[in-house]
Amino acid sequence: MVEHRRFGNLLPHIVLLIGVAIVAFPVYLAVIGSTHNDVVISNGQMPLYPGSHGIETYWKTIVSGTGKTTREPVGSMLISSLIMAVGIAVGKIAISIISAYAVVFFSFPFRMTTFWIIFVTLMLPVEVRIFPTYKIASDLHLLDSYSGLILPLIASATATLLFRQFFMTIPKELVEASKMDGAGPIRFFFDTLLPLSMTNIAALFVILFIYGWNQYLWPLLITTRDDMQTIVIGIKKIIDVKDALTEWSVAMATAVLAMLPPVAVVVLMQRLFVKGLIETEK
């Protein structure tokens, strides 16, 4: 369809630009806020241009933290968050690719039942099963540990479903050719299936990394130690100060820092991400 309507094109652009502004303005504000000192922000007259305290604020945020609230520099929060997010993403991918492999390529009794049981867990996210999951984690002495942060979150019906759909598009002749070439199930998995799934894995990694990074409720419950705080919890704690001036510049800097890793992952993996969602290499 070719259209040359000047005003017809203008309106959608205006709508889109407004949308971009609505999304981008708070982010811009956070970046600006992190460059002013707390007094300027707190008196309600924060300018919309960058201030001069940027480097100082970020240095303080990353290395020494706020002292009063989180008792932990944001740098170590970033590391905790990173371990959790990567752990969840990698764990989810590893588990779901194996379960999808079993469901698609092997015939065993109650195969479809198994698949549907996995599928039904879509309706049981952590928030729904939080008390029993907490009880189990506590009984297994997983509180205040990275295993406790990661393990209860790594079962993923969505990822299993995605891999299953992809595996079902792989021609069965490829499996048979592997059999003829003397590759057993494990060899087929590593030599053929895994390389073919690379774009899907990349796409899933992006989604799951962000999912893991944004976890709030579960880390809040399972960790109490300061050195295990994730950055998402850190932001909340920094803002939530009683009887004192909130360190807004640090809070803003933390928010900006919390945004950076997901952005980096998306930017770095964007091409693979799009490829993984729209096409399958065959």
Partner: peptide, 27 residues
Amino acid sequence: PADRDIAMVFQNYALYPHMSVYNNMAY
């Protein structure tokens, strides 16, 4: 199948898409 000492050519060729021609044959 692998121990029958046979080789098969499939209708859709079933080449390994991620391997080079050399590796397809060498696999």
